[in-house]
Simulated scan of single mutants.
Amino acid sequence: MWLNESEQELRRDLQSVASDLRWSAVELLRIAEQLRQAGNDVDAQAALRLCEVFQSNEGRLAGYAEEVKARAISRTTKTH
């Protein structure tokens, strides 16, 4: 069964935000490594904790996008 326009938009939005979180986590990992190398272990650990949060949320959003695709989550067509 095909997704309606609103469901397609929801799925794209969820995938987009998940991707943004993934790339943000990658960048934070790079920053954490630089902090660690500079001897700033406290801030490096804080950045790593943020990475964990981002990665967890990225996984949840990607899962929601798959639920939309499987029609376990739906959205009715918007009317303007």
Rank of each mutant, 00 (worst) to 15 (best):
S24A: 11
E33W: 01
R71Q: 15
C51S: 06
R71N: 14
T76H: 09
L29S: 13
G59P: 03
C51L: 07
R36Y: 07
R12C: 00
V17R: 10
E52V: 06
Q8C: 08
C51T: 13
L28M: 15
L35F: 02
K78N: 05
I73N: 03
A38K: 12
S24H: 08
W2D: 15
R75M: 11
I73P: 00
N4H: 05
V42P: 07
L35R: 05
Q37Y: 00
K69G: 04
R30I: 00
R11A: 08
A25E: 02
Q37H: 08
A32D: 06
K69M: 10
V68I: 05
G63R: 09
S56Y: 07
W2R: 12
T77F: 04
E58N: 11
A38Q: 11
S74I: 11
A65M: 01
I73W: 02
L21A: 00
T76N: 09
N4R: 05
Q55H: 02
E58F: 00
R49P: 05
Q34C: 06
Q45A: 13
L61H: 03
E58C: 11
R60D: 12
W2H: 13
S16Y: 07
D13P: 04
G39N: 04
R36M: 09
E58D: 14
N4Q: 07
S6Y: 04
A72C: 06
A62P: 01
A38I: 01
Q15D: 10
H80D: 13
K69E: 15
A47S: 15
S56C: 06
E52L: 01
V68M: 02
V42G: 03
D43W: 07
E33M: 11
L48E: 14
F54A: 14
L50Y: 11
N40A: 11
T77H: 05
S56E: 15
L21Y: 04
L61N: 00
A25S: 13
A18L: 03
E66Q: 12
T76W: 07
L35E: 07
S56T: 14
L29A: 12
S19N: 13
A72M: 08
E66P: 00
E58K: 12
A25N: 02
Y64L: 15
R30M: 01
G59W: 08
N4K: 05
